[in-house]
Design a protein around this nucleic acid. Structure first.
Length: 755
DNA sequence: GTAGTTTAGCTTTTT
DNA sequence: GCTAAACTAC
C-alpha cells in the first residue's frame, strides 16, 4: 500500500481517495493541505494507475510547484516529472507555445514583465500626446490588467459604451484607445504580458474548439491549489478544461484569500458549489501546526470578517506561549529588539536560524531588520523584494537574449540599443521609428539598413549593433544558452563597461552579470536538461521570479519576507513587524469593507505561520520616504483579546522611559536642521574649471578638504554607503551641506586631513 | 545630439 | 532610497 496514506487522518484520507467527480477541500491553516494534495496525486498514479501526463496540477507560485513536485517524486519516483505541475502562468504558457500559431503568435513569443508593460504604456501615452499625469502607467496598466482578468479583450473594452462611460467619469476617456494600441503593439512585438497568458489561453480554447477538446481529453484529473486566489480568467479556463472528465479538485481556504488586488475573486470558492451541485466538500479543520494560543487568537481575528465559509479550526497541540508584544521607538530600534529577541531565544533553546522568520507588510521594511541582523551576525535570507531578475544589469543582459530570439521585441530593443552607450541617442531612435512607420516595416528592418536613413556616425553605430545581433542570432540553433549569453555579454560591451566601472556599485553590477551567466551555465549543464538552447532558457526564466537563485545558498538562515511571500510556509518563531495603523492595514486598502477584510485575512495568514510563538512589533516613529513619521498602533492588535498577549521584557526597559509626548518630542529632536538658504550656484571664478582634475574618490575619507568645480571648497562630513550608492555629505563654505553621489561627483582632494 | 549630473517624485502585496 | 526625467555641458 501507499505509505503516504498511512500518515493521514480520517478527513485527510477522505480528501485523498475521493478522486472521481468534483471535489472541494477546504483546508484551514496548518491542516496538511500540501500533504493531501501530494498524497492525492501519488494515489492517482499508484493506485488508480493514471498516466501522469493526464494529470494537471496548478499552483500560484513556483515555490509551491517545486515543493509539490519534490514531494510527489519522493513517493512515486521520477515518473512524477511527467505530471503537468506548475503555476497557472507556466502551464498555460507551455500550452500557448505549443499552439501559438493558432492565435497568430510565434512559438518563441516574449513575455513582458510589469516593467516592460509600463514602459510600453508610457511610450504609447506619449505618442498619443496625452497628459502623463492623468494617464499614469500604473493606473492604466491596472485598469487593463483587471479587464483582462475578467476576460475582456481590448476590442470588447473599446466597443462597450459602459466602460467608456466609466472611464469618462474618471476623466480618462481615452483608456479604451490606449488599451487597443497596447494590445496591438504587444502582438506586433510577439509578446504577451502576464495577463495575456491567461486571456490568450482562454481565447485559444474558445476560438479553436479542436484545441480545447485535445486538452479536455488530455487532462483527466485536475487539481487546483490556493483556489481562493483564482480570478475569473483562471477559473473559467479550469472549468472549460474540466467539462469532459469532470474530475476537478480544488483546494483552498477562503480565510487566506489575499490576492484580490490582482483580480482574485473570493467568490470563486464561496460559490463553487453552485457551479457543481454534486460537489463533495471535505473540510480539514484540525491544525497540526500551531499552539492553542496561536490558533485561538487567529480564529478571533478572522472571526471579525463577514465574508467567509463556516469552519471550526482547532488543534490538539499544547496551549503554548502568549503572543509577545514589542514596542520600539524607531524602525531601527525595532530591528535591534527583534534581532536581540531572536538571539536570546535561539541561544536559550538551542534552536537553528531557520526556526525564525521576520514578516512584514511592505518590502521596504526589510532594510532596518537586515541591518540589525547583520550587526549581531545572525545570517538571514531574503525572499522576494527587489529580485535578482529585476536588477538593471541583469535585465539588460536578458533583454539582449530576448532580442536575439525575437527581433520584434520592442521593449527589449529599447533597453539594449544604447546600453552600453554606443552613440545611438533618443533622437536617432525617434528618427528610425518614424521611418519604420512611414515605410510600414519594423524598426529592426530599418536598423539593418541604417545607412539609407541615417547619416554618418549614428548610421555606423546602428549597423554595427545590428550586425552583431545578426551574427549571434545565426548561432542560436548551434550553441547552447550559456555560449550565446557569454558571447553577447562580451561582444556587446556590456561586461566591459561594467568591469571598467570601479565604483562599489559598478563592481556589484559586474558580479551580478557574472552570477547570471553562471546561472545560465547551471541551466545548460544540468544533466536532466533536455533542451539547453537559448529559447528554452528564456521561456524558463520569464516566469521564474525570485526564489530559485536565493534558494541555492541553502544554509541555516533566518527568513525575511513579506507576508504574501510567506503563505504556505511555517516557522517555529514568527516576528511580524510594523503592526502600525498607517502600514498594516495598508492605508491604500481602507477604501472599502472588503479591502479591510482582505488585510485582516493577511494578518491571519501571518499569525498562522507560527508553530510555537508569535511576536508582534510596532514602533512609534518610522522613516518613510526618507522622513521620520509618527506611527500609531494598528487596530489589529486591539482586535486580539488581551488574554493572548504579553509585553516582552525588552520592551519594558524602553517603555519605562516613555511619556505621552515622547513620540512628538523624539521626532522633533531627530528632524534635520533646516537647510541653509540655497545660494545661487555660481561657479567660483577663482576655480579654473578647465584645468580641474578630479582625484580618485575611492581615497575620500571624512574630514578631508575637497574642491568641487562648481561648489568650491568644502569639508567632507560623512561618507555613507546607501544601498547601491555611495554618498558623501560635504559642507561647502558659503553653501552649507550638500550630498553628492560619489559615482558622479568630480572632487579634488585638497588635504588628507587629520589621519 | 549625446553624455554626464542633479533633482523630483513616488512605493502594497505578485505571476 | 532608488529611478527616471530634467537639466547642463560638451
Amino acid at each position: 500500500m501507499i505509505s503516504s496514506l498511512d500518515s493521514l487522518n480520517e478527513r485527510q484520507r477522505e480528501a485523498t481517495v475521493n478522486t472521481e467527480g468534483p471535489c472541494m477541500i477546504i483546508a484551514g491553516a496548518g491542516a496538511g493541505k500540501t500533504k493531501v494534495l501530494t498524497a492525492r496525486i501519488a494515489y492517482l498514479i499508484q493506485e488508480k494507475k493514471v498516466d501522469p501526463f493526464k494529470i494537471l496540477a496548478l499552483t500560484f507560485t513556483n515555490k509551491a510547484a517545486n515543493e509539490m513536485k519534490n514531494r510527489i517524486e519522493q513517493v512515486v519516483g521520477s515518473i512524477a516529472k511527467n505530471v503537468w505541475l506548475g503555476t497557472f502562468h507556466s502551464c498555460f504558457a507551455r500550452i500557448l507555445r505549443i499552439e501559438a500559431d493558432r492565435i497568430g503568435y510565434p512559438s518563441n513569443f516574449s513575455i513582458y514583465d510589469t516593467a516592460d508593460s509600463k514602459s510600453l504604456l508610457k511610450s504609447i501615452i506619449k505618442e498619443m500626446n496625452l497628459d502623463d499625469k492623468t494617464y499614469t502607467p500604473n493606473v492604466v496598466l491596472s485598469r487593463i490588467s483587471s479587464a483582462k482578468n475578467r476576460l475582456i479583450t481590448a476590442q470588447e473594452y473599446f466597443n462597450n459604451p459602459l466602460y467608456r462611460e466609466d472611464d469618462e467619469s474618471a476623466m480618462k476617456p481615452r483608456l479604451g484607445e490606449i488599451f487597443v494600441t497596447y494590445a496591438k503593439r504587444c502582438f506586433q512585438a510577439g509578446a504577451m504580458d502576464f495577463d495575456d497568458i491567461l486571456l490568450n489561453t482562454y481565447l485559444l480554447f474558445n476560438q479553436h474548439l479542436d484545441v480545447l477538446y485535445k486538452y479536455q481529453e488530455r487532462f483527466q484529473y485536475m487539481l487546483i491549489d490556493e483556489f481562493q486566489d483564482t480570478n475569473l480568467a483562471q477559473y473559467t479556463i479550469i472549468k472549460d478544461l474540466a467539462v469532459v472528465h469532470n474530475n476537478i479538485c480544488v483546494v483552498g481556504d477562503d480565510a487566506q484569500s489575499i490576492y484580490a488586488f490582482r483580480g482574485a475573486n473570493i467568490r470563486n470558492i464561496l460559490n463553487f458549489e453552485k457551479d457543481y451541485p454534486n460537489l463533495v466538500i471535505v473540510k480539514l479543520e484540525q491544525n497540526y501546526r500551531s499552539t492553542q494560543n496561536i490558533v485561538e487568537a487567529a480564529n478571533e481575528i478572522i472571526g471579525k470578517n463577514q465574508l467567509q465559509l463556516k469552519k471550526n479550526v482547532w488543534t490538539a497541540n499544547e496551549r503554548g506561549e502568549l503572543i509577545g508584544l514589542i514596542r520600539a521607538t524607531t524602525d531601527a530600534e525595532e530591528g535591534r529588539l527583534v534581532a536581540a529577541s531572536i538571539f536570546e531565544i535561539k541561544v536559550q533553546n538551542q534552536l537553528r536560524n531557520e526556526d525564525f522568520a521576520v514578516l512584514y507588510r511592505t518590502n521596504s521594511q526589510s532594510r532596518a531588520i537586515e541591518e540589525a541582523l547583520r550587526k549581531v551576525n545572525l545570517p538571514y535570507r531574503m525572499l522576494g523584494g527587489m529580485s535578482f531578475y529585476q536588477r538593471k544589469e541583469v535585465k539588460d543582459l536578458l533583454a539582449y537574449l530576448r532580442f536575439i530570439v525575437n527581433h520584434n521585441d520592442e521593449e527589449a530593443l529599447k533597453r539594449i540599443i544604447n546600453e552600453p552607450k554606443r552613440g545611438i541617442g533618443p533622437s536617432n531612435i525617434e528618427k528610425m521609428i518614424l521611418v519604420a512607420s512611414d515605410h510600414g516595416i519594423s524598426l529592426w528592418e530599418v536598423m539593418c539598413n541604417a545607412k539609407n536613413f541615417l547619416s554618418g556616425r549614428a548610421a555606423e553605430a546602428v549597423e554595427e549593433f545590428a550586425g552583431m545581433i545578426q551574427v549571434i542570432a545565426l548561432e542560436v540553433s548551434k550553441k547552447d544558452a550559456y555560449e550565446i549569453a557569454s558571447e553577447i555579454a562580451k561582444r556587446s560591451g556590456l561586461l566591459k563597461s561594467l568591469y571598467e566601472d570601479k565604483t562599489v556599485e559598478g563592481l556589484a553590477r559586474y558580479e551580478n552579470v557574472q552570477e547570471l551567466l553562471s546561472g545560465i551555465k547551471a541551466f545548460t549543464s544540468n544533466p536532466e536538461q533536455a533542451d539547453p538552447g537559448l529559447t528554452n532558457f528564456l521561456q524558463d526564466i520569464a516566469l521564474a521570479t525570485n526564489s530559485e537563485i536565493t534558494d541555492e545558498d541553502g544554509g541555516d538562515k533566518i527568513s525575511l519576507m513579506t507576508i504574501h511571500a510567506a503563505k504556505g510556509l511555517e516557522f517555529k518563531y514568527v516576528y511580524i513587524v510594523g503592526i502600525e495603523e498607517d502600514l498594516f492595514p495598508s492605508p491604500l486598502m481602507l477604501g472599502s469593507k472588503e479591502d479591510l477584510e482582505e488585510e485582516r485575512r493577511l494578518f491571519y495568514v501571518a499569525l498562522t505561520r507560527a508553530k510555537k510563538k508569535i511576536f508582534l512589533s510596532y514602533t512609534i516613529s518610522r522613516y518613510r520616504f526618507g522622513k521620520l513619521k509618527q506611527c500609531e498602533v494598528s487596530r489589529f492588535i486591539g482586535e486580539i483579546d488581551p488574554m493572548y498577549l504579553h509585553m516582552s521584557h525588552a520592551t519594558n526597559r524602553y517603555t519605562e522611559k516613555l511619556n505621552t509626548n515622547y513620540a512628538k518630542q523624539f521626532i522633533n529632536s531627530m528632524r534635520p536642521m533646516a537647510s541653509p538658504k540655497r545660494a545661487k550656484l555660481q561657479p567660483d571664478p577663482s576655480t579654473n574649471i578647465q584645468a580641474f582634475q578630479a582625484s580618485d574618490i575611492t581615497q575620500l575619507k571624512s574630514g578631508m578638504q575637497v574642491e568641487h568645480p562648481t561648489f568650491g571648497i568644502g569639508n567632507v562630513i560623512t561618507i555613507e554607503l546607501a544601498g547601491a550608492h555611495k554618498k558623501a555629505r560635504i559642507n561647502f563654505s558659503g553653501l552649507g551641506e550638500k550630498t553628492l553621489l560619489l559615482s558622479f561627483a568630480k572632487l579634488k582632494i585638497l588635504s588628507s586631513s587629520k589621519e
